[in-house]
Amino acid sequence: MAESVAHQHVARAGATGRRRRVFKDGKGWLFVGPFLAVFALTFLAPIGYAIYLSLYRNQAFFGGTVFVGLDNYTQALQDPKFWEAFARVAVFLVVQVPVMLVLALLAALAIDSARLHAAGFFRIVIFLPYAVPGVVAVLMWGYIYGDNFGLAANLNDLLGTTAIQPLSSSWMLPSIANIVTWEFVGYNMLIFYSALRTVPGELYEAAAIDGAGTFRTILAVKLPALRGAIVIATIFSIIGSFQLFNEPNILRTLAPNVITTYYTPNMYAYNLSFAGQQFNYSATIAIVMGVITAVIAYVVQLRGSREAL
């Protein structure tokens, strides 16, 4: 995303160097316009409405709607449930995201390396978890984590213990992290893999001529090519972690006392809205969460792209 400010036209085809040429006029809108139009309808409008909602308070039964200004925000910033949920996803993020991205990176490098037997098979099987629809997740993980009749129970019997209790409150976060990792390593691996596929052959030739072995090639050619993809994948994963919802929700039917309605900030906003009909406060929580997430993601993006030069 670095901007170079070359203005000159290239005199003839095949100029030397790899400086990026960009046009300094509004033709870009031609390409960006359609996306932005739909984006405005499906994202900006609801967010605008949510901001509007967050300035009011509606009493569902008696009393109607009242303008309360920033009261909802003060309430949210002092809400212990919100901060408990936030702390939880922050811890989750710090541990799970690096583990998942490293696994995905190693998998992508391995599959791209041409040293793997049946790389195509690995590629699709590692991707498959991402394609599994959520509706079976309860049944599937209910079996694997089931400590009465499921796999966990079998493992406990095998080891002669009762220590493996994936749905207990001390194990819950790692159990969720496991599900998320299982689901998304393939997704991130593909992001890295397709970035690796755009590396031109000459770079590998040049490295080979310089006498670079496997690891030097990885460090000097592949990793720099992956820089942009790694930044994206990190940002997506950060946003995804802060918005953690599906996986704890899946486990909620199996462990209703461990997973509260405010287990993650996203669940909190959802339950406020749908179970409690408290749309205004729900919108407030969503906006606050959105701002925090955006700031952190933006910082990561800035750091990532500054080093890209």
Partner: peptide, 19 residues
């Protein structure tokens, strides 16, 4: 774009529905 994506979608479901 980044700001919009950062807002959790589930809380936007009702405004989107009403719209």
């Amino acid at each position: 774009l980044l700001g919009a994506v950062a807002v959790p979608g589930t809380a936007l479901a009702v405004p989107t529905f009403l719209m």
